[in-house]
């Protein structure tokens, strides 16, 4: 593909750049059309990111209408979904009972649980990543285990967590959920931190050696700052996974939250709210990812 485009680019460029260079008299009639095309282009670009997503959205909604009217009669159509979800969206923080709350109130409960599990994931994953990055022996010893544990689904971890915390009584379901979130979300942090530690330039380590920095100072003044950009990439990916896991964890444990609400409404045959939950989960996940990538970019440039 690149083979066929390359010659056209090469031949097109001299022809375009040749015109203005030909001399001022020849170039004089040119500006008006050039100005118009750039203005057209900039207007098009604006429409690009406003209009095109709107078109895409409209297409999906239409498809949804058609689908609910033809193939899948049980699927609520968009208007019904909106009418049924309205009380949850219009009063997002209302509390009508443990399992009947506003959508943002549920989201908040889920976020708190995710935050706890995520903190555990980072607290375990970062040191583990450093260990793997620093020691070849540790890498050889632990890498196979990590590669095997990494693809295991949260649905598989949760029952194990329930068993682990069987003795905890009322707290068991929360602890099991935290365990699942932590163990699923920690791998990107572990692996990215390890890669980052291995990628520390030898020059920086030589500086530490020449200055005779102590081990602790080498770690805090040189190694951690040098690894931060990689660590934050790991943190961002981990947060994505933690949010992904929350739904599964709440479904199986029956805890109140966005995932628990989804599952409960499914069991209560209120299908409209399933779609509301999916949209909310998607939007919250998107916002979290954006926030983290802002932080990440700050560390990349620093």
């Amino acid at each position: 593909m690149s083979n066929s485009t390359l010659p056209t680019i090469l031949t097109a460029q001299p022809a375009e750049t040749g015109k203005p260079a030909a001399g001022t008299p020849a170039a004089a009639p040119l500006p008006p059309p050039a100005g118009r095309t750039t203005r057209d282009w900039s207007r098009l670009v604006k429409l690009d990111w406003l209009l095109l997503p709107a078109v895409g959205l409209a297409a999906v909604v239409v498809m949804w209408f058609i689908l609910s009217a033809t193939l899948s009669k049980d699927l609520p159509n968009p208007t019904r979904t909106w009418e049924s979800s309205k009380p949850y969206v219009v009063e997002p923080f209302s509390y009508r009972g443990e399992l009947d709350q506003g959508i943002l109130r549920f989201t908040w409960l889920s976020l708190v649980l995710v935050a706890k599990g995520y903190v555990i994931a980072l607290a375990l994953g970062t040191p583990l990543g450093f260990l793997l990055g620093l020691s070849k022996m540790m890498t050889k010893m632990l890498d196979p285990i990590i590669q095997i544990l990494r693809p295991v689904s949260p649905l598989a971890w949760l029952p194990l967590g329930m068993v682990l915390f069987l003795g905890a009584g009322k707290q068991a379901s929360e602890l099991a959920a935290l365990f699942t979130i932590a163990i699923c979300a920690m791998w990107p942090t572990v692996l990215n931190t390890a890669v980052g530690v291995r990628a520390i330039p030898q020059d920086y380590l030589n500086v530490a050696k020449v200055l005779k920095l102590s081990r602790w100072k080498t770690l805090t003044k040189v190694m951690i700052p040098a690894t931060l950009p990689y660590m934050f990439t790991g943190f961002r990916l981990s947060l994505g996974i933690a949010w992904l896991v929350i739904v599964a964890a709440e479904m199986l444990t029956g805890r109140p939250g966005i995932g628990g609400f989804l599952w409960q409404q499914y069991n209560a045959l209120v299908y409209e709210q399933i779609i509301l939950c999916i949209l909310t989960i998607g939007i919250v996940g998107f916002i979290l990812d954006r926030l983290m990538s802002v932080v990440e970019r700050r560390f990349k440039t620093a």
Binding site: V207, L228, A302
Partner: peptide, 19 residues
């Protein structure tokens, strides 16, 4: 015996800590 601050090395590629 090993490196030390009594021999100050100015590295070929500066080796400043960018942060």
């Amino acid at each position: 015996q090993g490196p030390g601050p009594d021999r100050g090395l100015v590295f070929q590629n500066y080796s400043l800590l960018p942060w």
